[in-house]
């Protein structure tokens, strides 16, 4: 059975950090899943492409930012406004298990996909048992 899409309303960032940019900032909705060798973050950032996204890692904090210009429409008047338009920002704490150098990002159809590989040293290792001849 196919269900109807139900997701939380677009939410603005609620934090005390002073912004250096004017305008509204929203929290992108995100999915995070883990496999044996990586973590994957999918973040919805409609209006953002690879040239308007910024990903930083600082002190174990991974921050995603997407910049969106709200359109100016001369000659039009808004008659229905169900969502706001502005930048996106969200931070996640990284565990030590993530290989920072190996983080990869891609942007398609307004969805940012971040692949965070786990450090090789932390991956489960197979220990081969040698036959001991006596």
């Amino acid at each position: 059975m196919v269900t109807a899409i139900a997701e939380a309303d677009k939410q603005e960032v609620q934090e005390a950090i002073e912004s250096t940019r004017a305008g509204r900032v929203f929290v992108p909705r995100a999915d995070i899943f883990e496999s044996q060798d990586k973590l994957v973050v999918l973040a919805d950032m409609p209006g953002v492409d690879e040239s308007s996204v910024e990903i930083t890692v600082e002190n174990n904090i991974l921050t995603l930012q997407g910049f969106v210009k709200a359109p100016v429409r001369d000659g039009y008047r808004p008659v229905l406004t169900e969502y706001g338009v502005g930048d996106f920002r969200r931070s996640f704490t990284l565990s030590n298990a993530i290989d920072r150098e190996g983080i990869e990002a891609a942007c398609k159809n307004g969805v940012l996909t971040l692949t965070l590989p786990k450090s090789k040293s932390l991956l489960p290792k197979k220990v081969t048992v040698k036959a001991v001849s006596d």
Partner: peptide, 30 residues
């Protein structure tokens, strides 16, 4: 608010002029 799914999907913004209307929706990943 995280669990609040009060509105229909997708949310719409609509602008009107004398000649036309612009309807916008955020459909990331579609």
């Amino acid at each position: 608010s995280a669990a609040g799914t009060s509105s229909e999907f997708p949310a719409l913004n609509v602008w009107l002029s004398e000649d036309d209307a612009l309807v916008e929706a955020e459909l990331a990943g579609i």
